[in-house]
Nucleic acid binder design. Structure first.
Length: 381
DNA sequence: CCAATTTGACCGGT
DNA sequence: ACCGGTCAAATTGG
């Protein structure tokens, strides 16, 4: 299987996100769960399944094309084109965006970072400011334009466009195409960051609401700490376990480790949809707008410089999946059914009615409880 | 009152 | 001239 550098990196990030999410889940399971806790745990578990599925799709020999077709399993599950293929160059935008009918318009100085189809276009972890809305030819719904909240004060050029799919409305609700442009450059430490976002909160339980006082868009927000040392520690442990076949899984990340600036947060937390929105707060080091690109991880080397032992990681890691033996040879469609069976118990859709808050209400998890983001105009989709 | 959103005008590429 | 993207004044809402 030709494994491109981009694909490796995407896989790497996907798995990092999965590992971190599992650490959160473990932390959450450390205490007796109330109803909200169970819901959160279930959502995390489902998201983990998604992470593994996407990763396995990516790894599946000679079947990378299937990856791009991983269909949305839940209203807020995301198909990230960038995660399954190359990042989308602007010149390929039409093809990837389903805008073949729209004359190509060159965006000078705009680099398309990622495109994805999602039911939750505002939960990828950044704060955005809406600066425009436009009816687009042959589009049923207007396109919305956002730029980074820190575009001015930090000169961040990151933008995103949200386009509701004309036919994207399936049983799970409307789907949106989200196009991200330009990397965030707003992750610099902000000395004036208020101290209310401090390290006293806990992860899984140490989340703060994604709502801002003024109701600005604040998507699911796991903010990235910069402690490469901890990342190294975690990843070394994880890989030692996975690749080396250590008898026990890597120790869970200490809650305290996750709760401060040293916390490890995945480069791009897989969209913990299902209403999961985290904001791992950053303390004295200041606030990070959150870059999806992780700081360099020293050990192991970056994905581009190490080769995945073919299939071994998959098989090894699959041991952590309940009932997921022999996955590498499994047909992808079977995998979908395994991880997202249509039963009410496992269906992400059915599993979250109580936490979805309805079609137009954004939810956030704070200390294991669900909060409604009524301030944010969770676009009346 | 302030900050975010809305929306019509404007700009520039095609 | 058309159309998508952006700007900025007006509006809205907490």
């Amino acid at each position: 299987m030709a494994f491109g550098q981009e694909a490796s990196e995407q896989l790497w990030q996907e798995l990092l996100g999965g590992y971190n999410l599992n650490a959160r889940l473990l932390a959450l399971l450390g205490d007796p769960l109330d109803k909200h806790g169970q819901e959160a745990a279930l959502a995390m578990s489902q998201e983990l399944s998604r992470v593994f599925m996407v990763s396995l799709y990516t790894l599946k020999p000679g079947d990378s094309s299937r990856v791009a077709g991983v269909r949305t399993m839940a209203p807020e599950t995301t198909v990230t084109e960038g995660s399954v293929s190359q990042r989308t160059p602007a010149t390929d935008e039409r093809i990837c965006s389903g805008e073949e009918d729209v004359p190509h318009r060159k965006l000078i100085g705009e680099e398309v970072i990622e495109k994805k189809i999602t039911a939750s276009p505002h939960k990828e972890g950044y704060r955005w400011k809406k600066y425009g809305q436009k009816n687009i030819q042959k589009r049923k719904f207007p396109r919305q334009y956002y730029k980074c909240m820190y575009s001015h004060e930090r000169g961040c050029r990151a933008k995103k466009r949200v386009q509701q799919q004309d036919n994207g409305s399936d049983a799970h609700g409307p789907m949106f195409q989200v196009t991200f442009m330009n990397e965030h450059t707003c992750h610099q430490v902000l000395p004036s960051q208020n101290s209310s976002n401090n390290a006293t909160n806990l992860p899984a339980t140490n989340t703060t609401s994604t709502m801002t006082r003024n109701g600005a868009h604040f998507d699911h927000a796991v903010h990235i700490g910069d402690n490469a040392g901890l990342q190294n520690k975690i990843m070394t442990c994880a890989l030692t376990t996975v690749i080396g076949g250590a008898p026990s899984p890597p120790p869970p990340v200490e809650v305290s480790q996750l709760s401060d600036s040293a916390s490890y947060v995945p480069p791009r937390l897989p969209e913990v949809s299902m209403g999961l929105e985290y904001e791992t707060t950053v303390s004295e080091t200041g606030f990070s707008c959150g870059s999806p690109i992780p700081p360099p991880v020293e050990a192991p080397a970056a994905p581009s410089s190490w080769s995945l032992p073919p299939r071994l990681p998959v098989e090894a890691s699959s041991s952590y999946l309940v009932g997921a033996g022999n996955i590498p040879s499994m047909d992808p469609m079977m995998m979908e059914e395994m991880y997202f069976p249509c039963s009410p118990l496992f269906s992400p859709v059915a599993a979250q009615p109580s936490i979805s808050g309805g079609d137009d209400v954004c939810m956030a998890v704070v200390a294991g409880r669900w909060y409604t983001d009524t301030a944010s105009p969770c676009p009346h989709y």
